[in-house]
Design a protein around this nucleic acid. Structure first.
Lengths: 214, 214
DNA sequence: CCAGGCATACCAACCGGTTGGTATGCCGCA
DNA sequence: TGCGGCATACCAACCGGTTGGTATGCCTGG
């Protein structure tokens, strides 16, 4: 019983096209520098459609952060490192995956939430909170493994929550450093920085000797 | 022989006022969201003065990054940690100073170059390079001490240059995380993250046991 | 089964205000 | 008297957002 709309080629409602366009454009130019007209052009949609789905540009920003959060959250939830028996391996596996995901231009691997919150943290509480939810949600996904690793290795002086935030901090910082570079060296610099994060955790969890950091 | 301008209470040519206004406004709202009119209003100067001193808004951005770089560079060059005999103490002293400088709202302690490069890295090569010079200049100021610390402690698997970049990466990342928070917890989160950087370096340079990280 | 009433999704044209930028004039100092 | 250092006045392009309108799908009562 195929419903009444026989031709819906690749799904793609105007709303989704706008959110995907927002992710691309915000990553490359930031939120404030991206105009509604540009968003509509990139999405292949008219301005009327934009304001049909979003009451304001700010609301699009909030929705883009949530969309970003949902996409990345689903991706990392499915990743194979969750199957590792040792929690330390799961934590290092997450970092290794993040390193493997870095490549190409900065706008291809950088973070929408981190970019938006930097511009909008004071001017829009709604965007700030959506970005907080995205970044802290990513952090929380690693907290359980970190708690187990801390427990197993007897680490003191910090907490799983604090360490999970540090993962996100280093990732965000690595993206900023990458953006200072010309295209062809951006990814290398970002990977180098995540290498230090890996080394910090390897030392904390007594896995020194298997370093990658350069 | 006092130069020709006897009363320069807080200095204040239109150019300097504009640069100081740019630092304040870019920190709080970002570069794209800050208009030329707003800049002029904040500086108490007219638009004619703006375009007399800067050929374009982009040029003001470049000049603001250089101005920022010069101010912060001079500040850290004068800091007392340079007098510590042990290079490890000098490195940790720099981090402790950065921690001590964090307080209040995020726009009071965050970085102009890091904010600007995130928005402008693709749309303006001139701004990107000015921000690169600012951030990498800050990094380079610590490189010599890091090299000495690496040498003294026999650290392998990384370089002073890479570690000096990591300092900046963690600082930038800490600022982004801080911006996700409501005003009253922003500074705490940023300090927490620099605490992890301190702990990483303490472990690398065999100073474990004196942790601060929370 | 289908008529009709309403909701959803979308569009093209348009609005007032703001944007970065310019053209020109004034004015104190060397 | 000239010139650097501003201020005033102005502009075309663009901004986020609104308008009136159409095409289509879904639900309900007869």
């Amino acid at each position: 019983m195929i419903p009444n709309r026989p031709f819906r080629p690749t799904a793609a409602t105007a709303r989704e096209k706008l959110l995907e366009a927002a992710v691309r454009l915000v990553r490359a130019q930031g939120f404030a520098a991206t105009s509604v007209d540009q968003l509509c052009g990139e999405a292949g949609v008219t301005k009327g459609a934009f304001f049909h789905h979003f009451p304001s540009k700010e609301a699009l920003g909030v929705a883009a952060a949530e969309f970003w959060s949902a996409s990345t959250g689903a991706f990392f939830a499915d990743a194979p490192f969750h199957g590792f028996p040792d929690p330390v391996d799961r934590v290092l596996g997450y970092i290794d995956l993040r390193i493997a995901l870095i490549g190409g231009r900065a706008e291809a691997f950088s973070c929408v939430a981190g970019t938006m919150v930097q511009e909008a943290f004071r001017s829009s509480a709604a965007i700030r909170m959506a970005c907080e939810a995205s970044i802290m949600g990513n952090a929380a996904a690693l907290e359980e493994d970190l708690a187990a690793a801390i427990d197993r290795c007897g680490v003191s002086g910090t907490t799983a929550a604090s360490l999970s935030r540090h993962v996100q901090a280093v990732i965000q910082g690595a993206f900023i450093l990458a953006k200072t570079q010309p295209e062809d060296s951006a990814a290398d610099l970002a990977r180098e920085q995540l290498g230090h994060l890996r080394r910090y955790f390897a030392m904390l969890f007594h896995r020194i000797g298997e370093e990658i950091a350069s």
